[in-house]
């Protein structure tokens, strides 16, 4: 397994937001993480990406423990993400946002630029072309020069995915990538997620759109009150009584 979480816990004060969750994501797999509001999905992503340290448990990426690492080190190990509440750099253009995402992939020492070496200009050109290509891949090439804050909600989400892809991550964490999108845009995102997985990146997808999750995910983990209540293929999970209970209310299972 490429990414595996073992008994991960996070408590805020006395409240356990994530209460001993375990899951694993294979290489090139699209793994869904679903659950009712407040189940701890975003908290789990925050712990994987190093924004907050887990209270207990281990997170292992390709044999290396990454829990407790600062977030920029986690990113350098190959995990990038998008945010539920979009966190683009608002004053930067769409293209520059993607260029920032490529930070780890660029070999551009400042002294070369200071000396006006041609190699610096060549590298910049290539980085810019790569970011434009990524914007094209998410269907945003028309608005590359637009300030991120001027883009529509759905467009911002797509730029955020391009930015996360720019670092060529081994695992990409997507936190509700289709929130606020219309059905046609959701179809485009589903296709994009599949193409990302085909090129060898793993995806951990937090999503409320059940149809999308059932369509694109190879495996699904269901979280409720911080605990894993089901794990398996989309068909297995859809039939699981505990899942039906969590989504439809406790009485339904009884």
């Amino acid at each position: 397994m490429l990414l595996s979480l073992q008994d991960v816990r996070k408590t805020f004060g006395g409240l356990a937001a994530v209460d001993g969750a375990s899951l694993s994501v294979g290489s090139g797999e699209v793994h869904g993480l679903i659950g009712p509001n407040g189940a701890g999905k975003t908290t789990l992503l925050n712990m994987i990406s190093g924004l907050i340290p887990p209270t207990a448990g281990t997170i292992v990426l390709d044999g290396e423990r990454i829990d407790g690492m600062p977030s920029h080190v986690v990113a350098s190990r190959g995990i990038t993400r998008t945010y539920q509440n979009i966190r683009l750099f608002p004053a930067l253009t769409a293209a520059d946002n993607v260029l920032v995402g490529a930070h780890l992939r660029r070999d551009a020492p400042l002294w070369r630029r200071m000396l006006f070496l041609p190699s610096a200009a060549v590298e910049e050109r290539a980085a810019q072309d790569a970011s434009l290509a990524l914007l094209a891949r998410v269907g945003m090439s028309g608005q590359a020069g637009e300030r991120a804050s001027n883009l529509s909600y759905g467009d911002q989400r797509r730029v955020e995915i391009a930015r996360a892809l720019a670092s060529e991550p081994r695992v990409m964490l997507l936190d509700e990538p289709t929130a606020g999108m219309n059905p046609a845009e959701v179809v485009a995102i589903a296709e994009l997620i599949r193409s990302v997985a085909r090129t060898g990146h793993s995806v951990l997808l937090v999503e409320h759109n059940v149809k999308l999750v059932m369509d694109v995910c190879d495996r699904i983990t269901v979280l409720d009150f911080g605990k894993v209540i089901a794990d398996g293929t989309p068909t297995e999970v859809a039939r699981d009584p505990a899942v039906i209970a969590a989504y439809l209310g406790g009485e339904a299972a009884a």
Binding site: S71, H72, R87, F89, A91, L92, G101, H103, S167
Partner: peptide
């Protein structure tokens, strides 16, 4: 613009 987001970009 956004320091925590910048950090998750590495």
């Amino acid at each position: 613009e956004d320091e925590p987001a910048a950090r998750t970009m590495g």
